[in-house]
Simulated scan of single mutants.
Amino acid sequence: MKLAAALDVPRQRPDWLRLKLPSLIALLVLWQASAMLIADPVFPTPWATVETGYAHLMAGDLLLNLAATLARVAVSFLFAMVIGSAIGIALGRSQPADAIFGGWLSIALNMPALVTMVLCYVWFGLTEVAAILAVTINKAPTVAAIMREGARALDRQLLETTEVFGVSRWKVLRQVVLPQLAPSFIASARAGLALTWKIVLVVELLGRPNGIGFQIRTFFNYFDIAGILAYSLAFIAVVLAIETFLIQPIERRTGRWRAA
């Protein structure tokens, strides 16, 4: 018998059911009321948006464009995380390197994303490589900045202790360094995922023949607001699913050592 049952303590409902679900319902009610009050096609109701999304789903174009965008997001996200993490850890662990190249990182962080996209398309053409490169260049500095702070916060005394006792580098990396860097890595991944897909949509809008961004541009040309909202909500749902079923479990798993 579980402790809660033994003490006759009522179980609390899951957080999403107790707090998030009523909040989402309130948002839908507000959306519906606003649409009814405005009564204009440029502000469709939730049901009209769902109907439009279902029609595009049955037609097959929603899944095809969603898959194209997800592929670009996955590749760009992977490259940005690897490159940004390597740069951030290197700068965080070396004060001379940070003094020399820290200014470069500041410039990269403040470079407008639109400028990078246009330059990549001009220099490399309207190609998939240019699109992925533009997103990676925009995302990697954010990862580097977060990982640099995480690397700076590493317990130096603990690292020195492992050197004194001759602990292998692989064991130090796996059991000392990575657990301490995990919160920074998760934070950069969470922020990066939201940032990456937004940049990918703009890249697609500017110069790709498919994807959510391309389709949103098409809907805009025909003032199809329901289509824009349907496509946007479909992709947001996918990103939230990734956050809920992938990033959050990894975060809980990597954070167990703190509670031990």
Results as ranks from 00 to 15, higher is better:
6 A>G: 13
17 L>P: 05
20 K>R: 12
24 L>Y: 15
31 W>N: 02
31 W>T: 00
34 S>D: 03
35 A>L: 06
38 I>T: 10
44 P>F: 06
49 T>E: 08
49 T>N: 12
54 Y>T: 04
55 A>C: 04
56 H>I: 00
57 L>V: 02
57 L>G: 15
65 N>C: 07
67 A>G: 14
71 A>M: 09
73 V>Q: 09
74 A>E: 06
76 S>A: 15
81 M>C: 07
82 V>W: 05
86 A>I: 02
92 G>M: 04
97 A>I: 02
101 F>Q: 01
104 W>R: 01
115 V>M: 14
119 L>D: 08
119 L>R: 07
120 C>F: 13
124 F>I: 00
130 A>C: 03
131 A>W: 08
131 A>N: 08
138 N>K: 01
150 G>W: 04
151 A>V: 01
171 K>S: 07
172 V>T: 13
175 Q>G: 03
179 P>H: 10
179 P>I: 01
180 Q>S: 07
184 S>W: 03
186 I>H: 14
188 S>T: 03
189 A>E: 01
198 K>T: 05
198 K>V: 02
201 L>S: 10
207 G>P: 10
220 F>P: 00
223 F>T: 07
229 L>R: 05
231 Y>I: 00
232 S>R: 05
245 F>Q: 02
250 I>F: 15
252 R>Q: 15
258 R>M: 08
259 A>E: 11
